[in-house]
Amino acid sequence: MAVEKGTISVQLVGEALLEARRRGLDVAALLERVGLPAQALERPYGRVPSALYGQLWRALAASMDDEFFGMNARRMKAGSFAFMAAIALREPTLGAALERVLAFCGLVFDGLSPRLVQQGSLAEIALDEPDGQHSRAFAYFTLWLMVHGLLCWLAGRRLPILGIDLRCPAPGYLEDYRVMFCDNLRFERPSSRLLFNADCLAQPVRRSERELKRFLAGAPANILVRYRDPQSLGARIRAYLRSLSAARWPDFEALSSHFYMAPSTLRRKLAQEGQSYQGLKDQVRRELAITRLDAGEGDFVELAGVLGFADISAFYKAFKKWTGSTPGQYRALIHPTPDCPKRSER
């Protein structure tokens, strides 16, 4: 089922309310307070506006005095996210800001200690958890939403996620998570982590104190919507390309015809979204390559052909540009063995 722009599945609303229900809070009154009809949650495929979900998020956090909705042994007291954003804003680079955010999260949570790990041009936010224990998927994704969403805001743009590993089993509903984060979600893994390109760590923080007040006034609804747009032209073109083999990808003239636009109009609309056709093709190739490598793909020559590259060297060059590593290095990070060298930490 397609994810509508600016809406959230009632499945995630139910996840947010789970601990509140267990603790006997008057959830019906809470829903009424934010103008969300309780019967709307009874439709299994129903969706609610992101703005309403954001209001529910804030009301629930205030009622529980816990911005993590009771999903950790220690409360993330109301105001914690604002404080975390304020201390991150004082740092000069995204890397330094992320270090402060993760250190703060380590102080707030029990048994959920995040740390930044870097290997070459690949980086990850790794979560240290007690052996044999894991949180439910909604808890992990809530943490990623806060950390990654804040980092995107500080950068002034979306920072692409290469993949997410979680120790927990896959939940029954994943579509919104794929839109918010990435398609490359893996469950029942040895450890939980979020993978991204390390080159963004050196980028400057681009926000001001004045912008922080406006950001916090709109959070978390602005995070839920600002850094995703499944109905954008770029998103529709990526979906179209994924439906075809790379060998059948159209040239720009044919693509324009498929979307019933003149080439100049398509080029202008993509430019307004900060996109280009070549960039979109590269994004889809990267997603497909990472998915195949995660599945254990070892024949890089065959993979290069599937992705539409003329030869293996062109594939290696492109993959190095996308991720900062070779396909073999990336696969070693995804599927570590006892013989792999120890990763370095920042």
Rank of each mutant, 00 (worst) to 15 (best):
Y260V: 13
G111S: 12
S245A: 10
D294K: 10
I125C: 03
G308T: 00
S80K: 10
D229Y: 08
P171N: 01
Q119L: 02
P204Y: 09
F319R: 05
L233Y: 08
A202C: 15
L52S: 06
V27G: 03
P190H: 10
P336Q: 03
L212P: 06
F141E: 02
Y227G: 01
A62N: 10
F83A: 15
Q118M: 10
I164G: 00
V108H: 03
N72A: 15
T323A: 03
R292N: 14
K5P: 12
D251L: 07
E345W: 03
A318E: 07
S191H: 10
Y140H: 01
A221R: 03
L212Y: 06
C200G: 09
M71I: 10
A155D: 04
Q55Y: 10
A221W: 01
P37Q: 02
K5A: 14
G132E: 06
A239D: 11
D311F: 05
F181T: 01
K321S: 12
D131W: 13
Y260W: 15
E91G: 11
S50P: 11
L241E: 03
A239M: 12
S325H: 06
P49S: 08
L98I: 00
L127F: 09
F315V: 01
G106D: 07
E124V: 00
R43S: 10
F319C: 13
L107F: 13
S257I: 15
H148Q: 08
A198W: 00
M64A: 04
A137N: 00
E19W: 12
R248I: 08
R21N: 06
P230F: 07
F69G: 02
D251I: 05
R90Y: 15
A51Y: 05
L98E: 01
R267Q: 14
D66A: 05
